[in-house]
Design a protein around this nucleic acid. Sequence first.
DNA 1: TACGCAAATGAGAATGATTATCACTTCTCG
DNA 2: CGAGAAGTGATAATCATTCTCATTTGCGTA
Lengths: 143, 143
Amino acid sequence: MRITPYGRARTSRQRDTIAEAVELIGAAFTVDDLVCAIRDRRAGAGVATVYRAVSAMEESGWIERVGSREGRALYARCRGGAHHHHAVCTSCGTVLATDCPLEAAALSAEVEHGFTVTAHEVTLYGLCRTCQVSENNAAGDGD
Amino acid sequence: MRITPYGRARTSRQRDTIAEAVELIGAAFTVDDLVCAIRDRRAGAGVATVYRAVSAMEESGWIERVGSREGRALYARCRGGAHHHHAVCTSCGTVLATDCPLEAAALSAEVEHGFTVTAHEVTLYGLCRTCQVSENNAAGDGD
DNA sequence: TACGCAAATGAGAATGATTATCACTTCTCG
DNA sequence: CGAGAAGTGATAATCATTCTCATTTGCGTA
Ligand SMILES: [Mn+2]
Ligand SMILES: [Mn+2]
Ligand SMILES: [Zn+2]
Ligand SMILES: [Zn+2]
């Protein structure tokens, strides 16, 4: 059973456009990014619809929440098999998958204090190789 | 120079009460937790004042932000020397300091993709030893 | 192919945490 | 004693996200 953007849910003109925008952006995005990307396209979509589409895409596993930026939730197209985390470039939004650092290291809280970890959040922010290079050349560029 | 709840800032009846509440709780707390804890005490404080006090306490390093719970920021009295992270008991709010797992493991994003990490978030949620024990005994005991 | 209806849409209201205002009150210090 | 800086608090403003509800639409089925 192939993973589609919306799982087994119904499709629509709006949802198609939204999924296209996700592919087009090809990096971490916020709901607002989608709303803007869609505004000038063939089919607009109300804010509520975009929020619902993002929820559906996340539920079906087609996108993942990868962090937050300025109070807005960050998502990305990042099909996840095994448990992993994300490195998000704060300049261009490129998202890399990283292994979970908690599996390798014996967790001090776990071994020293008998703490049972049931959930954890690990998110890295920084610059991808491309953006490091362009920072060397240009002085001040966006974000 | 001793670290005081409000750094070099002025003190007040309200701020004293707020700092007391932090010590009294002795676990992770939200701003709302403080507001409630103070309500019935000798000196109340407006919500805005509590928010400002929490900011001041965080700035002075007397408390730290240790995560979030249901959309509300979580803080704790956790004097931090070296870089570290937190394990927060989702049952009682106990906060443990944990070593940073990113320093031990060679970060795959860093070595494999040339990604430069400039910031990261690591927060563990789970059950402290005490709460694990009480879960074995009692069946359902609230959040 | 025509129906029926659950699912989707969207404009706008509601929520809820956090921040900003602004008119006081209270320290601090010379 | 002032003057000015800092703190207070009721209230309004932000702002991302969710909810409402009347209306439309996709799609399985007869
Ligand atoms: Mn992923
Ligand atoms: Mn700490
Ligand atoms: Zn760390
Ligand atoms: Zn506990």
